[in-house]
């Protein structure tokens, strides 16, 4: 009887330990977006992004707190949060997906990958496949990607009364560094 418990405990602890060893967590992040506009370009940075990669099944998840985007001009940040992103209601932008390519996580190297999943911005979900670069080095993983986001896809309105005209497509740059989740 006691042996069975020990065996069970060992198995479950073992499974737990194994999956924990496969999960990598963001420890450094840089997200940047850029929008060309008539009067002045709009851009912001965020280093409060979070992300996880599970090596066992190549699943990834990614979350950005909207209020943590920093702008050059404080008033722009206020307008971004209040008028465009409605960050009181939609606090985060997220992505959840699966890496399509087979990756040898044990081997150091750089891989061109595509990730298919669901991106949620402004509370509106959209299925996307995003290209990126994944690098494995010294038990660290780095992910870099650049993609476009159409405001209309996520019901982000461009008001007609605003003097400042804003581009309908936003360029997003993401650079994430992962280390083993402790």
């Amino acid at each position: 009887m006691r042996n069975i418990y020990t065996a069970l405990a060992t198995i479950f602890l073992g499974i737990g330990a194994l999956s924990a060893q496969d999960i990598f967590m963001v420890d450094s992040s840089y997200v940047h977006f850029f929008s060309e506009a008539t009067l002045e370009n709009i851009e912001a940075e965020n280093n409060k992004a979070k992300g996880l990669i599970n090596r066992a099944n190549s699943k990834v998840a990614f979350l950005i707190p909207i209020k943590s985007f920093e702008f050059d001009k404080a008033l722009m940040k206020e307008h971004f949060n209040e008028n465009y992103m409605e960050s009181e209601k939609f606090k985060t932008a997220t992505f959840k997906g699966q890496i399509n390519e087979k990756i040898n996580w044990k081997k150091e190297g750089s891989y061109n990958v595509t990730v298919t999943g669901i991106i949620n911005v402004h509370g509106v979900e959209k299925s996307r496949t995003i290209k990126g670069k994944l690098m494995v080095k010294e038990s660290r993983i780095r992910v870099q990607t650049k993609f476009e986001l159409k405001l209309v896809d996520h019901d982000i309105e461009i008001p007609t009364v605003v003097f400042q005209k804003i581009a309908e497509v936003i360029d997003v740059t993401v650079d994430l560094q992962f280390s083993l989740k402790k």
Partner: peptide, 16 residues
Amino acid sequence: NLTAQDDLLDMLEAEE
């Protein structure tokens, strides 16, 4: 336990 760890986004959202 496994499902909890499987949904990575839930983990992030819980932390956030």
